Amino acid sequence: MDVFDILDRLVAFPSVAGKPNGDIADWIEAYLAQQGAKVTRLPGPEGDRSNLFATIGPADVPGYILSGHMDVVPAAEPQWSSSPFAMRQEGERLYGRGTTDMKGFLAAALAAVPILAGRRLAKPIHLAFSYDEEIGCRGVPHLIARLPELCARPLGVIVGEPSGLRAVRGHKGKAAARVVIKGRSGHSSRPDLGLNAIHAMADILSAAVRETERLTHGPFDPAFEPAYSSLQAGVISGGQSVNIIPDSSTLDLEARAVPGVDPAGLLAPVKAKAEALAAQGYVVEWTPVSAYPALSLHQDAPVAALLGELTGETPLAAVSYGTEAGLYQAAGLDAIICGPGDIARAHKPDEYILASELIGCQRMIEALGMHCAA
């Protein structure tokens, strides 16, 4: 199978984040085993989805991890020109959910496996494919925890998120949370007998807006746009009718932090404001939704120099989106982003990747194999 056949098969699995992923994991596992790779399936605590870890070459020697996620975001938008889970080609463009984010990278890595397996690798190349990245990088921590028993300490991790095949050394960290305020309902003509959850939520929203403004004053990191950490209220809901005192209101928040700043800590003032409402009789529920740390790889890191050689371009300092790379770095491993496609095409109808981008990525991975065979 070539890279296009593999991508076609991968796109056909509707592996939406938060859902069972047995079908796609089964297919990838069988393909890798067929190519002679040593494959380990790593079931997650959810019981219906798994990570996969495969090794080509000697597992007891330090090598490199190619990291990607098998899940995709939903594809319910009506603007799709064709079925999102049936790959469609028009010229150079290959359409389908996940083609860019990030089954294109998975396909390129899998297509390179027969070439890698045919070489006598002195240093191994590992494939680490995770689940539920799109809903907060929930799967990969379980995989990272198992690495010491799966392989020698890696020399570096290449996370294949779409970057135009330009290596990237940094991204912001993120934390998201949901706050639910429960008050007491009643007729709007007697507000004195109820507890208006929307009015209470207004205090929390105001606290979030104040924090948003405060963060614009730094600390700063010029590698990013914007150069400071940020916080936003993304979704708010509550109430039934204008003449009913709303007894519940929900707010979803996220913070994105420059390296050196704890993203969860940015939400702390808002959380404190919410919890203070309990003294007024409200019931407050604060639920962390997702979190991952920032990535900040030093420009002199060996894996950065290696990716510069493999791509022919100096790695970029940073991008605005987040990846699993920060979690690998938090575990003590040098991690860098480099994958095919453009992030601007992701998470929207008619997502696509270029055939040339797939081929370019496969060639980069095969060049990594030559480096590991030397």
Score class of each variant (00 low, 15 high):
363 R>S: 13
179 V>Q: 04
143 L>G: 07
279 A>R: 14
257 A>G: 11
277 L>C: 05
205 L>H: 13
358 L>N: 11
86 A>I: 12
11 V>L: 03
96 G>Q: 09
137 C>F: 10
6 I>V: 14
313 E>Q: 15
207 A>N: 01
278 A>L: 01
202 A>E: 11
322 G>Q: 07
354 L>V: 00
55 T>P: 04
49 R>D: 03
73 V>H: 02
122 A>N: 11
253 L>E: 05
37 A>P: 05
252 D>E: 15
174 K>E: 13
13 F>I: 02
201 M>D: 06
323 T>S: 15
118 G>P: 08
316 L>W: 05
157 V>Y: 03
184 R>G: 01
33 A>P: 00
13 F>Q: 06
315 P>Y: 08
114 P>Q: 04
296 S>L: 03
16 V>G: 06
155 L>N: 08
279 A>Q: 13
137 C>L: 12
243 N>F: 12
118 G>C: 05
136 G>A: 12
201 M>P: 01
361 C>H: 09
175 A>R: 05
49 R>Y: 08
359 I>E: 15
135 I>Q: 11
210 R>Y: 01
362 Q>P: 05
176 A>L: 03
229 S>E: 06
339 G>I: 05
38 K>V: 14
367 A>M: 04
360 G>T: 04
52 L>G: 08
336 I>R: 02
374 A>K: 12
99 T>N: 01
115 I>C: 07
216 T>G: 04
198 I>P: 06
331 A>L: 08
